[in-house]
């Protein structure tokens, strides 16, 4: 009986641990729903969804990058790059061609990152840091320092269409994001290719020995990261009907924070797209509530930092604890308990 209880308690803790992002989301959402003025209405919730769209899309690829145990610091500039390419080419080739080109551009940047990481074996932190600088320069050069806007009726039409709520909480852009999240989440969990990414991140040596082409998966992860960043960027730019030269800059730190808060570990092999998505939603609900309370960005930055720090500390502390008890022998623990009981019995 006793043993069962201990097991249940441990199970409870591990279940809570695994689902902590959902609980965090629930708590923050409930708090805002109860106390934040004008929070619970269709319009505001749709606003949250709309704002979340960019970072949620970008975070799909970034989660994949963390799952394979790498880092991609260039996602922020890829967002901008895709936006600039997509909108800049629209005049000459139309959206029908410029949007795929923009997405492809993101993919190409990811491909270069991936090849440098997988084949040239340079640390991804360095490759993507360098790529960030290169891309920023490229963006400024091809635009001549000029943001791009599309103030034509067809551009406005697409922009309006993307932003229009056709169902509570859903706009086409949000729907695209959600579809991508569902596809990626399902693919990562249920397909062999998806599981292989985890294998590569969990132990690339094992993966390679199991006949998984780790280089190809590493490159693929960077390409997907580039693609999702580009998709996020171009959709965002189309809805804004403009591409500014730093529109993606704030996404980098945001996406890193959200992915970590969502429970994906920097060490690789752990985490999931859906959890990251919920983490993005959580942050977005929090930020939205802060604005509704009339509080400033300083509160927002501070709270985001505290939550992130708490999550990291919690995770570090659990693995610190786990290391302490790793290898404990159950029969000896039982023996200890028997001794204690005996001692208690004899003293009473």
């Amino acid at each position: 009986m006793r043993k069962l209880q201990i097991k249940d308690k441990q199970q409870l803790i591990s279940t809570i641990d695994k689902n902590r992002i959902f609980i965090l989301f629930g708590v923050i959402f409930l708090f805002m729903a109860l106390f934040a003025p004008r929070f619970m209405n269709v319009f505001n919730l749709t606003t949250i969804m709309r704002t979340m769209s960019l970072n949620a899309t970008v975070a799909i690829g970034f989660t994949l990058i963390l799952v394979i145990g790498q880092l991609d610091l260039s996602i922020g500039t890829i967002i901008t790059f895709a936006a600039v390419v997509g909108l800049g080419l629209k005049e000459s080739v139309g959206f029908g061609l410029s949007v795929p080109l923009a997405v492809a551009a993101g993919g190409v940047v990811g491909l270069i990152n991936g090849i440098l990481v997988a084949k040239a074996k340079i640390n991804s932190f360095i490759v993507t840091l360098g790529m960030m600088t290169v891309l920023q320069g490229t963006i400024y050069t091809i635009t001549g320092g000029n943001s791009i806007s599309l103030s034509t009726p067809d551009a406005f039409a697409i922009s309006d269409w993307l932003a229009e709520m056709f169902f509570p909480l859903l706009t086409p852009r949000v729907l695209i994001t959600i579809i991508l999240v569902i596809l990626a989440s399902f693919g990562m969990r249920r397909t062999r290719i998806g599981r292989n990414f985890y294998m590569v991140g969990g132990n690339s040596q094992t993966a390679w020995l199991a006949g998984i082409d780790t280089d190809r998966y590493t490159i693929a992860a960077f390409v997907i990261s580039g693609l999702t960043a580009a998709v996020g960027g171009i959709l965002f730019a189309m809805e804004s009907a403009a591409a500014t030269l730093n529109m993606g800059n704030s996404s980098l730190m945001y996406v890193i924070s959200a992915t970590i808060i969502g429970g994906t570990s920097m060490a690789g092999g752990k985490g999931g797209v859906f959890k990251t998505f919920v983490a993005v939603l959580t942050l977005e609900v929090l930020y939205n509530g802060i604005i509704l309370f009339g509080l400033g960005n300083e509160v927002k930055i501070f709270l985001a930092g505290v939550i992130l720090a708490a999550v990291i500390l919690y995770e570090a502390y659990t693995s610190y604890r786990r290391e302490k008890v790793l290898g404990q022998r159950p029969e000896l623990m039982k023996e200890l308990e028997r001794d204690r009981e005996a001692a208690a019995a004899s003293s009473s």
Binding site: T47, R50, T51, S240, M247, I291, K300
Partner: peptide, 22 residues
């Protein structure tokens, strides 16, 4: 009522939505 998006376009768009909502 003053709102500040901290130089973030996505946030400014959100604030515009929120302002309209008010």
């Amino acid at each position: 009522k003053i709102m500040s998006p901290n130089w973030d376009l996505a946030v400014q768009n959100q604030m515009i939505d929120q302002a309209i909502n008010e």
